[in-house]
Design a protein around this nucleic acid. Sequence first.
DNA 1: ACCTGAACACCGTTCAAGT
DNA 2: ACCTGAACACCGTTCAAGT
Lengths: 165, 165
Amino acid sequence: MALDRDQVVDAAWHILRSYGLGDLSMRRLARELGVQPGALYWHVANKQELLSVLAQRMVAPLTGSGGSPAQIIGAFREMVLAVRDGADVVSVAHALDPEGMQPAPLLTSALVRSGRDPQDAATTALTLVRFALGAVTAQQTRESMDLPTATMAAEFEAGVRAILA
Amino acid sequence: MALDRDQVVDAAWHILRSYGLGDLSMRRLARELGVQPGALYWHVANKQELLSVLAQRMVAPLTGSGGSPAQIIGAFREMVLAVRDGADVVSVAHALDPEGMQPAPLLTSALVRSGRDPQDAATTALTLVRFALGAVTAQQTRESMDLPTATMAAEFEAGVRAILA
DNA sequence: ACCTGAACACCGTTCAAGT
DNA sequence: ACCTGAACACCGTTCAAGT
């Protein structure tokens, strides 16, 4: 039975969650799947493409979930924070498609529903996402070095309140 | 004449500015300096320490420069944006010492001067820095892939206004 | 004090050749 | 269609030994 793309992505997902981005090499992934490194390039174009797929998977549960802007950006933070080096992976995907990648479109429509005009809603959504990615990047860097992060959830909430005020 | 720490840091600074983080390897740095890779470890503990020093150097011109909170965070953005992969380098330094690393302390006192209580000032400073790092990370990722960034300066200004409102 | 030589344990990617 | 084998051009770090 031949390898397929889903098996590659699933194995990559498992390594990322369990050991972090530092351990997610194409060679390590190939070893885990019992193939030669070159075999992976039949199923994915390169490592970057693989990481994009993992970023989509990380924020997938968000799509379709309602809530206020504060709830949406809070849920986004939780999902990214739950995956080791999640912020690094999602940041690239956000940069490639800032308006299309979740949670931006979800936030924009929630902000319009709450009474903002579309222009302001779109910009505020970008501000929230970039702040969240900056905050989670800082927290995950500290976690990877066993530094304390006790105040960072409150700092995040305060930042979101300031942006939405 | 023996190598010293400053020569190592200067050469690293030059590689970072000219070619980016992807080209700043300890081996490439050693080659540029005409020594074996191992020689570098007499002058710096490891690559991480070297990157911390480069982060300090990037934001050094900020110290002592006055201005409003909006001006300070704007100047910070310019400095980080001016160095290839600057946001990646500065993000780690910020995570290690969020309150001590510039521009946080500068922002906090400017915010106190403008009438905020110290608690609120400190948290707002962190929000501004994390948003700025998130925004510059997105922009530099796009620049590295030759994607357009025309709207990103305005998005940054709008974000700063929202946070400071 | 400062550096070399050499090693250890790795990377991402390509591509002719095999099945 | 899918994979192996082998290569290309690299990494960060350590450390005995040399000067």
